[in-house]
Amino acid sequence: MSAIGIRDLNVWFGEGAELVRAVKSASFSVAEGESFGLVGESGSGKSTVLRAIAGLVDSWNGDMSVLGEPLGRRRSAAFYKRVQMVFQDPYASLHPRHTVDRVLGEVLKLHGFSDIDARIDRLLSDVGLGTGFRFRYPHQLSGGQRQRVAIARALAPEPRVVLLDEPTSALDVSVQAEILNLLSDLRAERGLTYLMVSHDLGVIGHMCDRIAVMQHGEIVELLDVAKMRALQADHPYTKHLLDSSIRSIR
């Protein structure tokens, strides 16, 4: 059973003359426990794929399934218990007026857990934050600490699939390293499936087993990471991306 199966997914925004086809018949599948990367430049539709899976986009057609359950227009409560998402900008993904305690407490309550206090402490220590952070507001946290809180929030319902939307692109490189290590550790400990979107081939290469390259809403190439590291891409666009990425770090 694949963790995520996408077949002929189309996503569009607007209508009539304004219609923009953000994703054009994309198909891929992610095995359970795998870490899969979606790479592309801005506007390639990579984040839109994630949002469509998460149910944040209404205008789509095609077949999507997660852990064997086909997805319809509405997501069930069970879906949100199994699939969670981490957003790109940790400054925008936490409510500015809610303390860490309230963020995590509300999520745990929504999923019907009872031992909330103990769980909050455990989640915070799992993401490498002490309990001293529990009653802080987002503005009292650094970018990396905020992203850790966002990861704790995503882990709260004990999901099996985590969607990662550029989780480190707003962070400094040294903080990025910490967050990527944390994500790797959590995957190893909990056997999570990751679907990660990034524009940074270095990050994707570090985190993922297989990648899909997107351009103008289409998946132009699927390749595994060993092939990518050896710079053996078939599609010219992938080659171009790899080339730019290598040249900028030499």
Binding site: V173, S174, Q176, A177, E178, L180, N181, S184, D200, L201, G202, V203, G205, H206, M207, M228, R229, L231, L242, S245, I246, I249
Partner: peptide, 20 residues
């Protein structure tokens, strides 16, 4: 050195990145 090592390198993968 820490900054240099914390960047994931496409061609030279490491299982863990060095945290600064």
């Amino acid at each position: 050195i820490g900054l240099l090592n914390s960047v994931p390198d496409l061609e030279h993968p490491r299982p863990r990145l060095d945290a600064l």
